[in-house]
């Protein structure tokens, strides 16, 4: 039996918003430790990895490991039936073919219950190697969303350069080009870009903005985002989910043909 209780529906709603455009169907792998999901997008360009720790949830139990095959769009629709502040319980019996959702209103005077059919999903599980990155940049998640949105009006790809000056995002298109640079500046002045850069080697890599746009759907989960880069390996974009866990996205670089 698997059962997880979230004090508010909003975390699950936000997790689904952050994944449903990238992944249609995914196995939610539930164990005694918590909930994990790993899935590639349909083009196999990017990978999303979600982790929610059971001991940081309002309550959690999972006696036997269970993989719950979920259509992300269906789950998104069911979660829309909950108010953000509803206490939310998700539950599945061992060998169940449905997941049960219970939403309790703040005043406990309204309870809604939904059942969602589970699916058999054949998914490849990739081993993500431990990686020391040449550069890790922490910045405002809103700022990152803004830069991705702005540069998407210029071109399809972004060149990200990190050196000791800071981080620069650049895009080129048929009609022009644009760059946005953020200086590495430990000042805590109001209105400063407030980024921190952990750098061992300068890096310059190219990525498809289309996928970064999908990743920025996770911005409501966290005020900050961290970008980790090394030459010739996938970019890792991480949003913390409070103390409960994280959502990490990996994006393969564009390479010279």
């Amino acid at each position: 039996m698997f059962e997880a209780t979230f004090n508010q529906a909003s975390i699950l709603k936000q997790v689904l918003e952050a994944t449903k455009d990238l992944v249609n169907d995914a196995n939610w792998d539930c164990s005694a430790e918590g909930i994990a999901l790993q899935a590639m997008d349909s083009s196999h360009v990017s990978l999303v990895s979600l982790s929610l720790r059971g001991d940081e949830l309002a309550s959690y139990r999972c006696e036997n490991q269970i993989s719950l095959g979920i259509n992300m769009n269906t789950m998104t629709k069911i979660l829309k039936c909950a108010e953000n502040n509803d206490r939310t319980i998700i539950r599945a019996d061992d060998d169940a073919d449905v997941m049960v959702f219970v939403f309790e209103s703040e005043g406990r005077d309204k309870t809604s219950k939904y059942e969602m059919k589970l699916m058999d999903i054949d998914s490849e599980h990739l081993g993500i190697p431990e990686q020391e990155y040449s550069a890790t940049v922490q910045m405002s998640s809103k700022e990152f969303s803004r830069i991705v949105r702005d540069l998407s009006t210029i071109g399809e790809n972004v060149e990200i350069t990190v050196d000791k000056e800071g981080i620069t995002f650049g895009a080129k298109g048929e009609s022009g080009s644009g760059t946005v640079s953020l200086k590495s500046n430990p000042s805590v002045d109001e209105g400063s870009s407030n980024i921190t850069i952990d750098l061992t080697d300068s890096v310059k890599l190219n990525f498809a903005l289309r996928y970064l746009t999908f990743f920025t759907k996770a911005a409501p989960l966290s005020d900050n985002v961290s970008l980790s880069l090394s030459a010739d390996v996938p970019l890792m974009v991480e949003y913390a989910i409070g103390d409960v866990g994280f959502i990490r996205y990996y994006l393969a670089p564009k390479i010279d043909d």
């Binding site: 196999h44 490849e124 390996v233 564009k254 043909d257």
Partner: peptide, 13 residues
């Protein structure tokens, strides 16, 4: 010209 790499090329199956 740059081409898109696949994520599966980087992570072990």
């Amino acid at each position: 010209k740059k081409k898109q790499a696949s994520i599966a090329n980087f992570f072990k199956k």
